[in-house]
Amino acid sequence: MQKTIDIKNLDMKFNDLYILRNISIGINKGEFVSIVGPSGCGKTTLLNIIGGFIKPTLGKLYHDGQQIKKPSSEISIIFQQHVLFPWMTVYENIESGLKFKNVNKNKRIKVIDNFLENFNLKDYSRFYPYELSHGMRQKVAICRGLAIEPAIILMDEPFSSVDAITRINLQKYLLNIWDKYKNTIIFVTHDVEEAIFLSDRIIILSNKPAEIKKEFNIPFNRPREDNIKYTKEFVGLKKKISSLLL
């Protein structure tokens, strides 16, 4: 079966310094893949390349057989800083992608109301980003990225700057949405526990220049409950992966 995202022999150089080396990854449709690595190893750069924002020095990337050359709404990205449009309200932010794609008004209202409801943002639809807490901004950013029902979702450490309790809630929201829309998700994080909890597969990158160190298939069934984080298998896996990152 054709991989939905196919990365072949990717190299990325900035000013004679190799950031990424010989990265080859194949991702299946509907898969939830996490990319884990130490801070600053080039995970964000890799994601930006997949998103079509940066051209790799060497190598080719394909989305459903088509080469990725520029950003498109098929591959939606959620950056580390929420990057909400500060001149738009919560409602307008979530609406923005739908408006760009010329979705008609009635459908827009339905989709946005649905997200506001599911993410507990109903009371905040007229608020501006600067009036929201950090966790809420992240929620809005996720809603905005998901509202256009993209085939691929790229997420760059979306929960790293959020408190632990909010993070657990956001993870749950994310899994619910993913379960419903069955998008393909590529999730970058340095939090091993988060990666194991969320993903089908984990790809571990080494330090600069980042190469693929190892891949892990996550054996746990879905839907995943919170308490699997305390099981022996989970902790064992976490230990194994963490040691590879040191």
């Binding site: 998103g51 520029k70 990057v83 449009f85 923005s96 992608g97 794609k101 256009i148």
Partner: peptide
């Protein structure tokens, strides 16, 4: 900010 442009592009903005 470049990131706003990038975000908008990945949301389908022409």
């Amino acid at each position: 900010n470049k990131l706003y442009l990038w975000t908008a592009k990945s949301l389908g903005a022409d």
